[in-house]
Design a protein around this nucleic acid. Sequence first.
DNA 1: ACACCGTTGACCAATGTGGTCAACAAATAT
DNA 2: ATATTTGTTGACCACATTGGTCAACGGTGT
Lengths: 203, 203
Amino acid sequence: MDEVLKNMDPEKRDRIINAALEEFAESGYKKASTNIIVKKAGISKGLLFHYFDTKESLFNYLEKYVVNTVIETLENEIDWSETDFFNRLMQVAIIKGRLTLRFPKVFEFFTTILTDKSIDEIYAYREDFAPGLLEKVYVHNIDYSKFKPDLDMERTMKIINWVIEKYSMELLDDLLKKKNYDYDKITADFEEYMKILKKAFYK
Amino acid sequence: MDEVLKNMDPEKRDRIINAALEEFAESGYKKASTNIIVKKAGISKGLLFHYFDTKESLFNYLEKYVVNTVIETLENEIDWSETDFFNRLMQVAIIKGRLTLRFPKVFEFFTTILTDKSIDEIYAYREDFAPGLLEKVYVHNIDYSKFKPDLDMERTMKIINWVIEKYSMELLDDLLKKKNYDYDKITADFEEYMKILKKAFYK
DNA sequence: ACACCGTTGACCAATGTGGTCAACAAATAT
DNA sequence: ATATTTGTTGACCACATTGGTCAACGGTGT
């Protein structure tokens, strides 16, 4: 399976991957239909099972490929010298936006995978695929002395994260509907939110 | 169908409703299986189709019944004399928590229904079932003069809403896992978050 | 002419679908 | 006690969909 995959036309591979991501994200592993996947990908049934022997191995390949791609992209594209916490999170959100343009349903796919897993399992899953990454994003080089000293930091961090998650979600939904990607406008809008949060939580 | 439903044992009706809500929420209308619904509800196939002639009419009944229940509960249980914005939103969240204890998957059911609808359609849907309610929750008797005068109010309101939505979601997930409902502890924790937001956005 | 290879879609047994119905059980009326 | 209605069951149906196979096709290079 592996050597045959390496030689596949990359454009076609992305089409298959996106079709499969969409179907698995929408229906979960069991109810996802290979018939629908081939229809979405615009290929024949036979071809799908030529590249991926079974539905299960397709799912496994998908998971590995897509998780690794996301992690590598984050590792490589984050500016690790950035010291401002909000700017760091903004970078992450923007990178996620670019990934969504290439793999529209990746993050819904992740959500579906993680649904029904306990918090411990989710943590283990994350550490399995990207050991230490989460901590690195949140603390490496970040200057926490900018925050007001009397804050309930645990809850404050949760609040900031929730805001960014929700904003990103609305943003990604939007990206998938309209096709244009007005980088500057999005960044400016995002910065407005960050400004409000900074005023609220920075010294 | 209607008169036969009125006479149904309410405990059994709730079991059927919750089983159907769960299955529809999980799989969407088309992929939801009536076989799984009867299994979850612990009744026979025949009985489900005795009460609800078709899968479609079951879905329609569900939608009406559950939307009306949620709206009536909100209308009746909100303390409309409350003037503090954060307390108002906290009340809504707590009422949602109580509803989740009775209908564990209602809000996931709503989410599934609304997925793939455009923003305009969602707005129309809401106005169709609960005309004016949303506005009433957000403005009726609320004292907005407590907010700092120089705020970007549109974005600030979004932020507050996002925080409460996310907090509620985590709370509801939690409620479904553990069965106990430590009202006081939850309220206290919630109030901590509100305190942070008030310090950030109130004068 | 041949071999090779990516690709197709009709085809398969197996499982699942929404819905029916004759028959049983329990309550209710006579 | 008996007859009647009401609530409930699950085996059963025709049909759709499932994951997966395979003989055949068209194109490319030799």
